[in-house]
Nucleic acid binder design. Structure first.
Lengths: 177, 177
DNA sequence: ACACTTCTATAGTGACCGATATGAAACAAC
DNA sequence: GTTGTTTCATATCGGTCACTATAGAAGTGT
């Protein structure tokens, strides 16, 4: 999975996987079917890990806390010592061939779900008074998602955890109320 | 070049290029040397085109105008009718094999140059009074770059030009002064 | 001990990758 | 008209891709 994280879906070859996992190709195909399924199961592990977006959003008291929590988790998670830089979900199928368009769409769908969940959290806050009623929930959620995507690329380019934290702080400067 | 833009550096094959350019493989190698050089020349064309980051930054009256101008140019450029979605510079080497690490580093260097130029514009404004002296130039510039990176991915995922404009507006809400 | 199932490794499938050697066609010089 | 040079396409290079057919090893039940 680290190979998928580091090099992306298509640039990771079966021989990369066999040598990293310590098993041979027929075992992989017996257990997972094909490369695509193996990748999507790795993604599923990633997005439902101990620190995952849905949990952060749902357990936050307000949408502001949710946004800040997502950004902080990203700053930490994208610069881990024992993992590749950046985000598996954000970087592994950004550009790929037409043959992988369905995998790309699958990951885009996961990203959209996270954005929608954040947007609805903001919307609820505008109704309860925890956020100004005129706040543009779609724009705010989209902005946070864009920043997270960008932090992934910056982490891959070598940005430090502290730099990502400063970017997160700059992103939260415009949060309403 | 559109093939590089749409599918990225490694996912674009020589046969994609020959059929798109209407010439044969030996002609490409005679003219450019290899695939890597051809790609980097395409990137050079892209980043020095009629609407390019350096010009936007340098011709803006203030760093605030520069940031807003970069975001607006991104919203428009990433959703063009006759070009692939997103940004060639932001998406074509996000994840690639170890063999393309040098190409990846080259594009990262170009992105860093743009960020540095924006940061220095902000720094100058903090000295002339056009921006508050306590503004964190590095964080602000990094934030704008992250948003642009993220807008590229969102555009690829299908976000409309209007959606990107709203994200840009949300990103500028926190701009100081 | 023996038949049977399960698992995995060796070896190889056709297809495509980036990059070229080779030969034919077009053109310039005289 | 002949020669030398340049241009470009056909055909092919070795290598790697995702994937699998085959066969042997390990384990189980009786």
């Amino acid at each position: 999975m680290l190979s998928f994280w580091r090099h992306g879906y298509e640039a990771t070859s079966l021989s990369d996987l066999t040598s990293a996992m310590g098993i041979t190709a027929p075992s992989i195909y017996g257990a997972f079917g094909d490369k695509k399924t193996l990748f999507l199961e790795a993604v599923q592990l990633y997005v439902s890990g101990p620190v995952n977006a849905e949990t952060i959003i749902d357990s936050a008291p307000t949408s502001r806390h949710a946004a800040a929590g997502l950004l902080e988790a990203s700053a930490v998670g994208f610069t881990g010592r024992d993992t590749p830089r950046g985000c598996l979900l954000a970087s592994s199928t950004i550009s790929c061939s037409a043959a992988a368009a369905d995998v790309q769409a699958e990951l885009a769908s996961i990203r959209r779900k996270i954005e929608t969940r954040l947007k609805e959290k903001i919307l609820r806050d505008t109704k309860t008074g925890a956020a100004p009623p005129e706040a543009n929930a779609g724009a705010l959620a989209g902005h946070i998602m864009a920043v997270i995507q960008g932090m992934s690329t910056l982490a891959r380019d070598g940005a430090s955890r502290e730099k990502l934290r400063q970017i997160a702080a700059a992103a939260m400067l415009g949060w309403p109320a």
